[in-house]
Design a protein around this nucleic acid. Sequence first.
RNA 1: GGCCGAGUGGCGGAAUUGGUAUACGCGUUCGACUUAAAAUCGAAUGACGAAAGUCAUACGGGUUCAAGUCCCGUCUCGGCUACCA
Length: 810
Amino acid sequence: MSRYNPQEIEKKWQKIWEKEQAFAAAEPGKDLPKDLKTPKKYIAEMFPYPSGAGLHVGHVRNFTIVDVLARFYRQQEMNVLRPFGYDTFGLPAENYAIKTGISPQEATETNINNFKKQLKRLGYAIDWSREINTSDPEYYRWTQWCFLQLYKKGLAYRRESYQWWCPVDQTVLANEQVENGHCWRCGSEVEKKKMKQWFFKITDYADELLNDIDALDWPDKIKTMQKNWIGRSEGAEIEFEVEGNKNKIKVFTTRPDTIFGATFLVLAPEHPVISKLVTDKTKEKVDQYREETLKKSEIERQENKEKTGVFTGSYAINPGTGEKIPIWISDYVLMGYGEGAIMAVPAHDERDFEFAEKFDLPVKQVIEKPEGVKDDEKCYSGEGELINSGHFNGTSTSDAREMVVAWLERQKIGKKKVTYKMRDWLISRQRYWGCPIPIAYDEDGNEYPIPEDQLPVTIPEVKDYKPDNTGRSALAKAKDWLSLEMEVKDPKTGEKVKKKLTRETDTLDGYACSSWYLWRYVSPSDKKAAWDKKAISYWAPTDVYVGADHAVAHLLYIRFWCKFFADQGLLPFREPVKTLLYNGYINAPDGKKMSKSKGNVIDPLDIIDQGYGADTLRTYEMFIGPYDLDAAWDPKSVGGVYRFLNRCWTLCFDKELSKKDETISIRHKTIKKVTEDLHRNSFNTAVAALMEYVNELYKLGTTKEDLIALAKLLKPFGPHLASEMLEKLKADDVWPTWDEKYLKSDTVEVIVQVNGKLRAKLSVDVNDLEDQKKIEKLALEEKNVQNFTKNGVKKVIFVKKAKLINIVAA
RNA sequence: GGCCGAGUGGCGGAAUUGGUAUACGCGUUCGACUUAAAAUCGAAUGACGAAAGUCAUACGGGUUCAAGUCCCGUCUCGGCUACCA
């Protein structure tokens, strides 16, 4: 008598797969027919940061979803690309280096080796010949190349501006990396600092990034988050004249229809025109307010919802009414959005109303509420009919929005304008462990790109990884690396001259490195290009991309780069990911987040080593619940899945086969159910269907066909056990198909309801389903039905598809 | 405050297009095997009830022959967002 021994068979199959390189994808131009008609699937997870802690159960859920799909399509004889890589730049490795002196290069290598060892123990169907690592010079050479393409087109540029600065990590952060005024990495409060920084001009693609969202097969949650992040709003830009002053003030508003109700203007405290508006009387107070605002942390500015502000001393003219209206400054107006100035319409905007109330400014109603709208005593921001608005009186607000803009346009003081919340992507990082920006400067600060044939600009070895307090990364300490001589075009004379240059010491945001890796996978060792044209047009875009993080940043950046490179003729598609699956987290048994500090972390390798094996772990994590919801780890349920696999083993290796094939119908039913469930990513119900099948086989007896079908259907979840079974059965792993004819039986059960409640079940010949009269008669003959229809029958409804008859009693 | 999800047995969850609510798993109980235990196998398991039956999908209404599913209102939990003019 043999026993299910996962340790033994998993080791055996992992060895075989390694030796055979079993999961290598066929390559166009090499293994594939010239017409490239072989159907393909390109499936990937969001590549992980290989932390020193190794795999956790969340990784396993994420990677197993990819693996199940990859194996499922592979068994359907499709050409599957299922690569793997590591996102290795970043602060943890650098902070570790600062602490221990162990170089990030070395620590990264150690961590990758550990990760890889663990991944292999999970039996993933990865094409290991395509492994990539963003901190490998052969990889980041092409990241730098990508940067230069953006630079050439003016989409990578340098600008001085206030930036988020993390005082602990001593680096600039992107907007996306500031969470509630705190650094996303270390959690310390961030500050604003004025610095010259590199940006990618993602705003050029704002409209396309927004418009293409709807067509994506992505979760609505992510789509909405991206839409909100881009934050498009349509409105008007209106120019206000300043009384007794040549300066004009531009404002942005989404409600030009309310212009007659604008009773004051408010400028952001950072607005440059303020210094020209102040009078001797107001100067001191204004300056004081501006200083205070700049000093205030973002949190203080957010927490204090009470309106503050000061009067500048100047007045503007409302172009509608011709009236003088005061110009104020306040921190509720943000410099970074619109024009950094607004026309305040307190009667129809809650914020303006609060401000007006606090500083006793006039409130002028210009919209008449439609009748029946609830009286909201404060201010009304809905639609209605214009009043107090000169010749626009009586117009509906929606019509007026167009008409007012047209009227302003004729006077050349206003125009239609679209504004976005999204800003350009700040990519400079004052860190050592990142991809060096391939730029150098001459003495005058002119910038020169490093020529493509001189890439990569490699990261020099240093002894001390600490950034200095000037805001420069540790790269500045590599003196030999820092300076170079290069032949460049002189910016004044245009002549070619040899110049002494200094390298840029900022490195790229790690998100830049991960913005193109999905394309590197198609030709990972290509020495001539970032990606091979033929390979990319065969494999990409990625069919299924699976992750649990980076809803906005990463997923917006890959879309941006995709559109950019498509415009350069380098990619034959404009969206990088067809289907996005966003899986839920796995929490501790108590429902709380797993964390080292709480000591409630479940180590997947422990589960395997306890004797459960990888197949149990994989199958359990697919069975734990719908893939897109968070789930709590349940040690008892792991045991249940192990029992199920054990029963599969017993059926195949330790039980006699049945001579009669009584299970043909349930076999075909199961094949259909599992196949359809996998097509709709319903992994938990697919496993449940397999459990049901095994329970039935225990009861009814098992044929060889049953075992083969079971092993094939099980293989995506528990590939080692399934391989062991298929080997014994001398069967291939080609995905089984079902025949509808076996799903039908001669007799069917018809549900009999009275007034929608189940009262009886009829067993009728399948052909009788066509004969409503007969079924009706049989139903009415049922004793229990008669009990409930003593007062007669009003109506009978027969639903053939549902095999159901409902009798409406009087 | 705004937007988006979710609420089903003791627990995780199933019900795909309005058509038998509670699949599958855990737990619990009983039985078989065993000197005994574990493992394994079998049976039962929403609540009340002897049964017939009645009541149950957060709560209150509605539409329908029929509602976990659709509509209106309320509550609770989770996520995102937060003065974006």
